[in-house]
Design a protein around this nucleic acid. Structure first.
Lengths: 384, 384
DNA sequence: CTGTTAGCGCATTCAC
DNA sequence: GTGAATGCGCTAACAG
């Protein structure tokens, strides 16, 4: 509505010292946006500088007289002033906005990390922009667009290597801080918040071994995912450390999207004559799928099959039976990442570290009801 | 590093026509941020306006000669120019950023909606800022902060009434478009993207009734949540429409946070002599909890108890047994909300509608394995 | 087709 | 303590 524009100009340029300006001030309160610092200044008969100081300086020390200060505050309130943070960001060069880059929100842990980041951002006065990683061929253009908004920093999680590399390179060039919540591709000069998969998988396998299981299978994700490879390897290491053998086919990687095919894979594994008495999984949803397949095969969990998940997502205590799993403190990790980022933004320096800064969060075994001692009676004793 | 500032000023004010400027141009490429339109203009010997048009106008019609245009593009590339969208937003008054306000990301459906919003935002060139609704007493101050960043619009979901009202009032005053993905508190002049809970609950109850169930219980959420009340009422209506009675205690509302207490409530309901043969739930996680409790009580699902969820979240096909549930197209709803918002932003007008604009998405029954025909043999036939 | 000019709203010198 | 002046990087209006 262009009337507003005219009205505004009229008000600002003509009416400031008119007798009827109070009426217009009243009208103006309905256009919050449009009140500027100079409007307050003119109405309060002080300089814009003074107004700016009163409104933005820390309350303890405002180099302005008490009386003036009060007057300014009153007028600002009365006119319904609303600071324009865009203009502010431009002139200060600080947008107080961080980008969170992730592949998709479909995985619950991403939400948990984001939740943590939001907590940290709120307490340090940042906003969080959510960004989805594009396919590798568009990555350069997309990052360019992200940078155009001049964010104060970025947090990444679970991206492909090519995407990660590109982000690293471009952000380093622009001196934008970056924190990664992921231990897939550690660069020599980055900041990383991780929880150790090797430790976590060891905890899972050791828990099963302590319950007497020796035939322990493992389900991991697509071999294109860094975490899937890492956890599969951790499984093999843990097994050999405990002197347990890994028969052919006990380690399965689910290819493709996560729903597809897992049932068939688990089913064939559980129908072997030397079927595992326990299954560890690289993710909670895989553990759920295993329990589901066991249910279909009338295998009782945990009497005939123990199952361990990985992640301790919210629903993992709601499964039947409640899932024993490895907890990763995603929210804390997100919070921590945000704190590191804030720190790097404030003291613009640590962008050129000598060695990577790695913040390590321990995993924790959460024992619920999906694991139990190996059942001697139904185990294939003859094979031992 | 203050050397850069000096260097920059030196470059800009002294070196432009110097003989060694190519050397400095080369150096400057490492400071992407710092290249402005005027730098390109000076180097290419054209006016800033020309550069601006070449870089920003739609490629079809750039009112600039082909030769000039190419030169500008080449110089921009060579200097590594990166547009400053903050400055752009200030002068155009369009930040191309929308805020998504939600209570928490803990509920999976919020992530799904956000995913849809992101899809819409990417294709129309918006960024999405994620905002958590504060406690009601801080709401005014917080919204003020949100507005300071001059977002182009907001999308809300599942907020408390007091928060919703405040948002409505403040945004209307600032003429900021708002779309709500929720049908809790319909205001006379808002835009809403909803899926009809009444319809969905009816589908669930009818499905159970069609399987022969007549003793159908219902678990809903805290009576402080609008959706919980709505779905509970829909249950009662559906039951009476089907001429089924709702015995005392068949309708339970889970108070407090969602993990607490649900087991005890479900347990007492399932241990009654006239226990329900089927349970409908106001959310998938409640259905999971019911299945879990049934598992603990050695009640077979679906032979002894049928269970219907609500939401069709990702994990609902991974439960044991896979969950029959009502699908709500959250991602599509998010996308649709974003489209409506975009439209309102572009043609800045529909903010003052006569009547609310309500976009309605149908729910859909997804039959899996947690529901089955009522078992005559074990039902308490004497009671009929 | 191209260039000149004037702001957008704010924060930061530096005078007084 | 307060005010005047300058500029952040960009776009838009208008003039050539």
């Amino acid at each position: 509505m262009d009337f507003y524009k005219f009205y505004l100009l009229f008000y600002r340029n003509v009416l400031y010292s008119s007798k009827i300006k109070n009426f217009f001030d009243f009208q103006l309160k309905n256009l919050i946006f449009v009140i500027r610092i100079v409007d307050i200044a003119r109405k309060a008969n002080v300089s814009p500088t003074t107004v700016s100081m009163v409104l933005n300086y820390p309350a303890e020390y405002i180099p302005v007289g008490e009386e003036t200060s009060q007057k300014v505050l009153r007028v600002a309130q009365q006119l319904g002033y609303c600071r324009n943070d865009i203009a502010r960001a431009m002139v200060t060069g600080k947008s107080r906005m961080v980008g969170f880059v992730m592949p998709s929100l479909q995985e619950e842990y991403v939400s948990l990390i984001l939740e943590g980041i939001l907590g940290g951002a709120e307490s340090s006065g940042f906003f969080v922009k959510v960004l989805r990683a594009p396919p590798p061929k568009e990555i350069h253009k997309t990052i360019q667009q992200w940078i155009q908004m001049r964010p104060s920093g970025f947090i990444c999680t679970n991206l492909e290597k090519s995407v990660m590399d590109e982000i690293h390179a471009l952000l380093a060039r622009c001196q934008i801080p970056l924190v990664t919540v992921d231990n897939s591709f550690i660069q020599p000069n980055g900041t990383y918040v991780i929880s150790d998969d090797v430790q976590g998988i060891h905890q899972a396998i050791e828990h099963l071994a302590a319950l007497g299981h020796s035939r322990i299978g493992f389900i991991s994700g697509s071999p294109q995912e860094a975490w899937a490879i890492r956890r599969a390897e951790a499984y093999q290491k843990a097994m050999s450390k405990l002197n347990l053998s890994v028969p052919e086919g006990y380690l399965q990687c689910i290819k493709g999207k996560w729903r597809d095919g897992i049932d068939a894979v688990v089913r064939s594994l559980l129908m072997r004559s030397d079927r595992p008495t326990a299954m560890a999984c690289a993710g909670d949803w895989m553990a759920m799928a295993v329990i589901r397949t066991a249910w279909h095969l009338d295998l009782h969990v945990p009497r005939s099959l123990s199952v361990v998940g990985y992640g301790n997502l919210l629903f993992s205590e709601l499964t039947a039976p409640p899932l024993t799993t490895i907890a990763q403190p995603f929210a804390e990790m997100g919070l921590n990442a945000m704190q590191h980022l804030t720190q790097q933004i404030e003291q613009k320096k640590s962008s050129a570290l000598e060695s990577p800064l790695i913040q390590h969060f321990p995993t924790r075994l959460v024992v619920r009801e999906s694991t139990g001692p190996v059942a001697k009676s139904i185990s294939h004793a003859t094979e031992f």
